[in-house]
Design a protein around this nucleic acid. Structure first.
Lengths: 231, 231
DNA sequence: TGTATCCGATACATGAGCGTATCGGATAGG
DNA sequence: CCTATCCGATACGCTCATGTATCGGATACA
């Protein structure tokens, strides 16, 4: 019975972090494995042993790093959300750079393409969609996790909304509805396309999703936009 | 070791149904219990014993009526889908009756209200949403169940699309996009509102969903419609 | 009312997953 | 190189869910 965690190991520092590089690595590997297992079997269907196995460990490693499957799941969603926001920002930066360079405003008709570009760049669509669905379902059932899910969803929505907003301003059009509402609408459409694609058993899901989105999004965006000069 | 099912009990009738009223009742009770249990704990989280208990039986009754939890789940979704389609049709019939009676066409501006009415009348929103989400997630993961889910979803979409189509014709407007696409869009919006409502922990979900839908749907429908006389 | 059949209850065996206590190799610090 | 500590592996006991085989009461029918 060791008293490792019971007494703070630091004398004067208030940083509780006592993480070895080794520990961090195994945590990452466990998270990676959890990503695979959760997306394939769901949070209830994936056993702790299966996750540890997939990561190349035994359950001992798991219990040394996490206290429960839920904790692991939430850490996973946080990590992935961070990563998504990061790639989203990067991708957007690459997109708006040429807009400023060319000097003149691009054709407003291209706004749909820009929006589609911003949203379509989602690597690993399938796994992400599955884990996200699992997260949502968990949140729908359990009032305790609902705030977590809503926080993640909202932060993503806000981020994307400001991006769409600046892109739209740069192009010189406005929407007839609140940008955040529109963003939610677009996200819903995107999610729906993702799910349909997966359900159809389509290979190359990324391309298929983009095609699906582009089938209705242009008219939708067009119908909801107006130029800054009037109607 | 009885040979009940091994030999067809009928001499000349080709109807394989040998269902007692008793048997049918216990099946219904089991399905009801499964509805509650699946919506609360998910298909993986609900044990067979819990379902049987909830129905007031033991597992013996379950195994006497179903061969697996999946079979039970699919029968449940089929039963509920039938019920949904039924109430949808009924509700629509009540809605269009006054349209024909009054002789004149109602104001096209009311088309959004009609659509919202048609879609909003969904009893037991919460449980249905949860089971539906579970079904979708299962289908996303398992290519074997994807067709089942798609079949149910598409039949619902088609039904609703024809309803919207006739309602729209009666009112005298047209959509600028394919009716089926629009229907899907509306269903997505409706589902999204349902989920948000549940996530917010709102009581009286039915009212809340309708409010949410009405916040964006009118403008959306308006932007996508055009009168039959031109633009 | 008597009897054959149906159907849900009960008992049992089995396996999977979980959490903990403990061990031993790896690693960092001197 | 030596030692204290860390951390993942192993072994154990336990609970819960499953599937089956069998039993006994209910039900239909004469």
């Amino acid at each position: 019975m060791s008293a490792n965690k019971l007494v703070a190991p630091e004398g004067h520092s208030d940083a509780p972090a006592r993480e070895t590089a080794r520990r961090a690595r195994t945590r990452e590997r466990l998270l990676d494995a959890a990503y695979r297992q959760f997306s394939e079997h769901g949070i209830n269907g994936a056993s702790i042993e299966a996750i540890a196995d997939d990561a190349g460990f035994t359950r001992g490693a798991f219990y040394s790093n996490f206290s429960s499957k839920e904790e692991l799941f939430f850490e996973l969603t946080e990590r992935e959300n961070r990563a998504r926001l990061e790639t989203l920002r990067e991708h957007f930066a690459h997109l708006v750079a040429p807009l400023g360079e060319s000097g003149g405003k691009p054709a407003p008709a291209h706004i749909e393409g820009i929006i589609a570009d911003v949203m379509s760049f989602q690597p690993d669509i399938r796994q992400w969609c599955l884990v996200q669905s699992e997260f949502r379902l968990l949140a729908l059932r359990d009032p305790e996790v609902a705030p977590r899910f809503l926080a993640a969803a909202h932060s993503f929505q806000r981020e994307l909304a400001t991006m769409i907003d600046t892109a739209v301003r740069a192009v010189g059009v406005r929407f007839r509805i609140d940008t955040l509402d529109l963003t939610r609408l677009l996200i819903d459409q995107f999610d729906s396309a993702m799910q349909e694609t997966i359900l159809a058993g389509d290979d190359d899901p990324d391309r298929s999703v983009r095609e699906k989105v582009m089938r209705t999004l242009p008219l939708l965006v067009h119908s909801l936009t107006t130029t800054l000069d009037g109607d």
